[in-house]
Design a protein around this nucleic acid. Structure first.
Lengths: 192, 192
DNA sequence: TAAAAATGATAGATCATTCTATCATATGAT
DNA sequence: ATCATATGATAGAATGATCTATCATTTTTA
């Protein structure tokens, strides 16, 4: 009883968060009223599910981070798969761009400690793989793993944005990210 | 008389815009009062120089864009220099990061048409150079010039940010941008 | 069906911010 | 010294947003 009730409550909360995500993608300045309207509920009900605007954003961020974390945890990192780890990460993450990228868009709302820490935790395994690949010699060692991670992240976000805009096709996005990140834009065989 | 007066007025306006830039870098949510305080003037005077908050941001953006435009216009684009054009652009632009990069930070305030258009105008010559280099065969032709321009821009912004954070040394920043953009992060000589 | 819980609409308290108005003071030119 | 102009401090109007409280209505549960 209290179980089934809390389950449906959680479902409804998720529906609200979904709606909030959707409208915030298109209108980052959407007010609580806008969000409630878009979710098809009253403002009062919105506040029954969400303590405050700030908490709403924290929940949105943490939920996105959780999704990413779950995706990442399912990608094998053992020796056999490590060379394809990053391409696989991109391939798996691209489809979720519309639900994630807007979170990073505005620095305004997402400088919360809780969020930044969670983000760092998410990115850490990727950084470790980068370091391993550096030691293996398949990624350059004359750049810090932090830098490479940041470049990777930047290109990924750019790609999400471009897919959103319709400037890049979703199915070619992953390849583009990896190709750009690994090989750069210089023509092959040309001298510097 | 009216000349010298308007000159000093313009100087004062510039000083105010400088102060606004500085505080907004550290605190993107700074209120008009914060900005006036930081500039060492009263809020009333601030409004005597600036019509509204929105106009302040427009002026900040247009001024930054103007600075960038002037820098770019002094970099030669002829055949002789075209291969070094992009490196030179980076080299020249890096020092101005602290005055520019925060403008792109928050999409919130800078989706103004006037600003986006001006930004596009600034970037256009760079895109043209990219296209020329593609035709010359020194930049890959299997990626659109738009994509390459966006990657370039993203990495540049990332670098400004990293310099700001102290994670990247200012003097090595330009080289890092170019190296990453052109060659990617894959170790040289390794097979895919 | 009857009780309990959830919802929506509304009004409004609270708060922050932008911008204006006013006036006393300071600065600067002649 | 005098007059015009610029400035700062302050108060406050106007606006917009968040969040709460209330109550009638709907939905769910037993």
């Amino acid at each position: 009883m209290s179980d089934s009730r809390s389950v449906t409550k959680e479902n409804k909360l998720n529906a609200i968060l979904d709606a909030a995500t959707e409208i915030l993608v298109n209108k980052p300045t959407a007010s609580m009223n806008d969000i409630a309207d878009y979710a098809g509920i009253g403002i009062a009900t919105l506040h029954r599910y969400v303590e405050s605007r700030e908490q709403l954003f924290v929940q949105l961020a943490l939920r996105s981070i959780k999704v990413v974390g779950e995706i990442l945890s399912q990608i094998p990192k053992d020796d056999e798969h490590i060379e394809t780890y990053i391409p696989t990460v991109v391939e798996e993450l691209i489809p979720y761009g519309d639900k994630i990228y807007f979170l990073i868009q505005d620095h305004q709302h997402f400088c919360n400690e809780e969020i930044l820490e969670a983000e760092a935790i998410i990115l850490e395994p990727i950084r470790e793989v980068i370091e391993t690949l550096q030691q293996r010699g398949s990624i350059r060692q004359d750049m810090s793993s932090d830098w490479i991670l940041n470049v990777f992240y930047s290109i990924l976000i750019l790609t999400w944005q471009q897919v959103q805009n319709g400037h890049v096709a979703k199915r070619s996005a992953a390849k583009l990210v990896i190709d750009t990140l690994f090989h750069g834009v210089k023509a092959t065989g040309s001298s510097s």
